[in-house]
Amino acid sequence: MTVTRRFKLVCAAGLFTSVFLLACGAGSLAWFHFGNPTNTCASCHEMTGVHSAWSASSHRTLHCRNCHGGSLTLDVHALRSHVNRVVQHFRRSPDQPIRLTEKHVLALQEACRACHPQSFADWQSSRHSATYARIFLDITHNRTEQLAADCLRCHGMFFGGNIEDLVKPISTTGPWALNDAAKASQPAIPCLACHQVHTPAAGFQSAHLYVRREQASFSADLLPITPITQGDHPVKVSPDPRQRLCTQCHAPNAFRQLGSADDRTPSGVHEGLSCLDCHSSHSNSAKASCAACHPSNSHCGLDVEKMDTSFRSTGSKHNIHFVACGDCHNGQRPAKGK
């Protein structure tokens, strides 16, 4: 046997072996990509909780890979975390909670959009689709109040770091910049801020609050109704679970005073109404909502559609969040409508 021939043989063996190994890998990945989750991901007990919740959810017709990506589509980070999980499984280490990184939360948005284009478009048209740049580089805000860790409770709740890791400097003088320029165009309040996908379809059950400090979602049903007071008088607050979710971020100050901080609880004639009675859930628009309850005219003959009812018009006596009977009627019985 000549030296070249031996060399060729070794090379051939090498080629076949590598082709074989590559095929093994591809086969394995394909198994995990296309296989039934009960035989793949969910065969590890660490996944059974998540899997059984999904099996009972309205999203059960979708395969894991539709939202989470499959083994053939996943990025290196996810693959590594999965392999790591498998290793942990066989070493019988205590299982770590399964968490999505912000990258995956944002990737998941695309899956949401694919099936819910209208809701997605509504959200996109709303202020809730505000980007990191819009929120954290707002000069007016930043000059007034120093950025703080607490901002991340409601904006950028999936951000995987502390406030100093997101934006610099932490001061009221600026100039401010995001540490990672790519974040500028990312939404800071993604779908999963208010939704949990592995939940039954009935009612508002996908309405969940993502609590950053617990790194978990809590069903809106379980959230408390925040007591609100005007002076010393308690204000009637709608028991609508969806409103509880709103209140978590559109919150009053710690003294729970009506209209304090970010509170928008309606008082006056609209006391007790839910946010959702007027605002659409994804666009947040309240446009033309008055007419739902006030057919064309109010009792006194004024056209509700022509009033300035906006929350932002603090000077308007028709501000829908505050307007009270006495604002127009000076403590007297209104005259009969004509």
């Binding site: 086969g27 394995s28 198994w31 793949t40």
Partner: peptide, 17 residues
């Protein structure tokens, strides 16, 4: 070889799971 490899890959994964 590719077919064999893929089969082994699938088999092994199925076995492991």
């Amino acid at each position: 070889v590719v077919a064999l490899g893929a089969a082994v890959g699938v088999g092994a994964s199925a076995g492991i799971t």
